[in-house]
């Protein structure tokens, strides 16, 4: 497996994502700068959390138009697994790889704490390692995590079982308690919570370690 982490200006979870991937795969992933026009040989891509381009204009808006994203979009459309975490989720929505958008949190506050998620879909390559209805604790740390889409889109996500995770106690006003969604083909996952921040007891939790292990095993 040859995972890659895309690094944008002001990404701040790129190294956490790299550490999680290294723990799961046994080797360090490729780190790819956003200004590159093409991807190295990779079969698994993570768009990390952070505040790319200072969240200017809209969260993820500039990152979605950066040179590397054309290559990421091509790869995603060809079936390569792509995970966008937090700012990465916002970027995937802005890039059109996932439907909807992430609005300002309904309570206006930046929310930074651990949240419990219910695993809703257990058939995707990202969540296949979970039992249906399993609970995981991942931290969130965001200001714009309020998932929004029109009713038709939400109904489609629900009906096609493309909601990967839901919040048990919604921290940001997200429609239908959505914490993470899949694209139609099932190879792109966007999620606001940070599994890469809980990969060791030293970091306060290990639910993320299991997440990355099951993801890389399924995608290998």
């Amino acid at each position: 497996m040859k995972p890659a982490v895309i690094v944008f200006p002001a990404s701040n979870c790129d190294r956490d994502a790299a550490a999680a991937l290294e723990q799961a795969t046994g080797k360090a992933p490729l780190m790819v700068w956003h200004g590159e026009a093409s991807l190295p040989d990779t079969d698994f891509i993570i768009l990390p959390g952070g505040f790319s381009y200072g969240d200017y204009l809209r969260s993820g808006a500039m990152a979605a138009k950066s040179p590397i994203m054309r290559a990421v979009i091509d790869k995603a459309n060809a079936g390569t697994p792509v995970i966008g975490i937090c700012n990465g989720f916002q970027t995937l929505c802005e890039a059109g790889l996932l439907p909807g958008a992430l609005l300002r949190n309904s309570g206006l506050n930046f929310v930074c704490r651990s949240v419990t998620l219910r695993v809703e879909n257990t058939s995707s390559i990202f969540t296949g390692g979970y039992e249906k209805g399993a609970f995981v604790d991942f931290p969130v740390a965001h200001h714009d995590g309020n998932y929004f889409a029109d009713d038709e889109t939400l109904n489609r996500l629900d009906g096609d079982e493309r909601i990967a995770f839901r919040y048990v106690d919604n921290p940001n006003g997200s429609a239908r308690d959505i914490a993470g969604i899949l694209n139609e083909a099932g190879n792109v996952l966007g999620m606001m919570p940070h599994p890469e921040r809980v990969i060791s007891p030293l970091l306060g939790g290990v639910d993320g370690a299991a997440f990355f292990k099951s993801v890389v095993e399924a995608a290998a």
Binding site: A61, C93, A149
Partner: peptide, 9 residues
């Protein structure tokens, strides 16, 4: 269309 506005919202 390409950058300044997000038609979703």
């Amino acid at each position: 269309k390409k950058l300044l506005a997000n038609p979703v919202m």
